[in-house]
Each structure stands twice: as C-alpha cells, then as structure tokens.
Amino acid sequence: MSTRVPDGVGATAIGVAAVRAHESTRPDRLFDDPYASRFLAATGWTPPTRADGRTRLAGVVLTIPIRTRFLDEALTDAADAGCRQVVLLGAGLDTRAFRMDWPPGLKLFEVDLPDMVAFKESVLADDTPACARSVVVADLTEDWTTPLLAAGFDRTAPTVWVAEGLLVYLTSEQNEALIAEVSALSAPGSHLALTVLNQSRLGEIKERLLDNAIVDLWQSGTPDDPIAWLASHGWQATVHDPVERAAAYGRPYLFDHLPHGPGRGFVTATRHEGRPH
C-alpha cells in the first residue's frame, strides 16, 4: 500500500494529525492519540514556519483539539445511550476505533476515498482496533450508502454519525444530500455530531486568508440556523460554542486574540421518530 497522503482535501488530514500529535504531548492534553505522530513519520511531514501562510489558520488549528475532545465525548454519550454503530463520514486519519474505549458489540465504520484509506491502512496495518472496525471505500458525493450497507451496516440499529471538519469541503447541494441520506439510514435513537461553519463566517475567513491552499478548498457553509436545518430532516439539535467548550476544558482564553464569532460551532442531534418518507 502507498504511504503517500493524497493531494487536495486529503492532504489536510495530515495537518490535523500534526495538531493531534502535538496535543498528545501536552501534560494537560485533552485526549491522547498515539497514532497521529506515526502518520506524520510516514509522510516525512514537517511543520510550517511562521512565515508560511498556513500559520494564518491559527483559529482553525486551535479549534482542532477542542473539537476532537468534544466529539470524543459525544461518541461516548451516544454509546452510553445505546448506539452500537458508529459511522465516521470522511474519516481521514481519525483513530477513534483504536484509541477510545468502546462497549462490547460496537461496530465502527469509516467512510473515505481510496487514496486516504490506502495510506491509513498501510500505517495501521499491525494495529488492532478496540471495536469491530470496517473501512468503507466510497466518495460521499456519489453513492456511498450501497457500500456502507454491503459492509454490514444495520439500518435498524441506532447509530451515531460523525462529520468532523467535513461539510466545508462539500457544496450546499452535496451537504443537503448527505444529511438526507444519513437521515434515511437513521433508526430512532440515532445521534449525529457535526462541526459547522455558516456561509457568512466562511466568506469572512476566505476574504481574510486569500490564496490559502486549505481555505481555497472550502466550498460552502452550513445554513445559518443548523437547528432548523436538521429539524427539517427529523433531528432535534443543539449548537455548542467552541469558546465555551474550550473554557470547560480548562482553556478559557484560547481564542481571545483571534477573530472568533457566531457562525462556527459544534452540533449534536438526536432522532426520536422514524425515518422521513
């Protein structure tokens, strides 16, 4: 298998792994991801200098440990509530299947593109996950539900879905289709956890960070009212402020010197009724 991280959106995953590797070395770390540094070693990746334009993404970089910890907790809460299926959409270099404690019988599915899957599997080939793990090679902008079902996904079982740092890389139409497909596969009792950035906030960041290789890949923001958006698909949602979560995790001043306002956050949602018709 290849040890080369794909270009484009796939390349952003190694940057996320770098942030997680650094966080894992802190004495006050919010999580421990011992695999993140191995992904870096496999690519020979080196951190950018301060002169590098990527460092202008400080707000995004600082959010990654907060969102990682938040989603770890959301997954644990969903598992405690009875979800025994996890689906990581656009999983990238996520290692939750290996580094988290899971209840017996839980199945975890990782959905991503072929090149990303090949790289990740080459690095983790000798490791054993802490749950039943299935890798689903699929493009989320095409038919991904058929290969997910073929991999053993049970549409009658409550599921927790995670889309971390994903939606900005899809168009509005693709995001709408993705949430509709997730909703159609979600039994009552299912959970959903997303990171969101609305169109206005996305536009501000793109204007401030012109010609940034990462930001240039962003295609769309989520609706201004994610609660109403998800309600239209049958979900009861709550929006969580990253600033408040950072304070709760012992980092109350994390974003004080950075542009940060409404329009960015984390969303959790639950589904109590049946699938939409």
Rank of each mutant, 00 (worst) to 15 (best):
G250T: 09
D94P: 12
R20D: 07
Q236A: 13
P34I: 06
D33Y: 10
S190T: 05
R38V: 01
E73A: 13
S122E: 11
R84V: 12
R96T: 08
A74Y: 08
L108P: 07
R251C: 05
R67L: 04
R133H: 14
W45V: 00
A91Q: 06
F119W: 02
R133D: 04
G92T: 10
L75I: 15
L217F: 04
P223V: 01
I227C: 09
L209E: 12
V135I: 15
C131V: 15
A246S: 14
P276L: 10
R133W: 12
G10K: 02
V86Q: 07
Q174R: 08
A21I: 03
V87R: 02
A74R: 13
R245F: 06
A187Y: 00
H260V: 12
L62M: 09
D77R: 14
Q236C: 01
D216E: 13
R29K: 13
T171C: 11
L62I: 02
L209P: 04
E204Q: 15
E121S: 14
W218P: 12
T68L: 10
L185G: 03
L194K: 04
A97R: 08
I205D: 08
A18N: 04
R29D: 09
T146F: 01
D72H: 15
W102I: 09
A21C: 06
V162L: 15
A36Y: 08
L148Q: 03
P47S: 10
V267I: 09
T76E: 15
L140I: 06
T159I: 00
R4Q: 14
T12N: 04
L40S: 06
P147S: 00
G15S: 07
W102Y: 12
L202Q: 12
V136N: 01
G261Q: 03
E121K: 13
G15N: 08
T141H: 02
R99A: 10
E181H: 11
S232E: 14
T238G: 00
A228M: 00
A187Q: 00
R271L: 06
A177R: 14
D241H: 08
V136W: 06
F255L: 11
I179D: 06
P104M: 05
A213D: 12
A58G: 06
A91P: 09
H277G: 15
F39K: 02
Q219N: 11
G44D: 07
D32V: 10
H260F: 15
A11I: 00
S2W: 02
F255K: 01
N212T: 05
S2R: 13
F119S: 01
A184Q: 10
D115M: 04
A177I: 01
E181F: 00
A231C: 00
S200D: 14
R29T: 10
T141Y: 02
L140E: 07
A118S: 14
F266H: 09
A79P: 10
T268Q: 01
T68G: 08
D154I: 05
K120Y: 02
R50T: 14
A42S: 09
P48D: 02
A42N: 04
Q199V: 02
A237W: 00
A36R: 07
E121V: 10
F119H: 05
V135Y: 07
T63K: 11
V267S: 03
W161G: 03
D112Y: 03
T195I: 02
G261S: 05
E273K: 14
S122F: 01
L124F: 04
T55V: 11
L113Q: 15
A151K: 03
D224T: 05
T128P: 07
A228N: 00
T159P: 04
E110Y: 04
D241T: 08
V196I: 15
L30C: 08
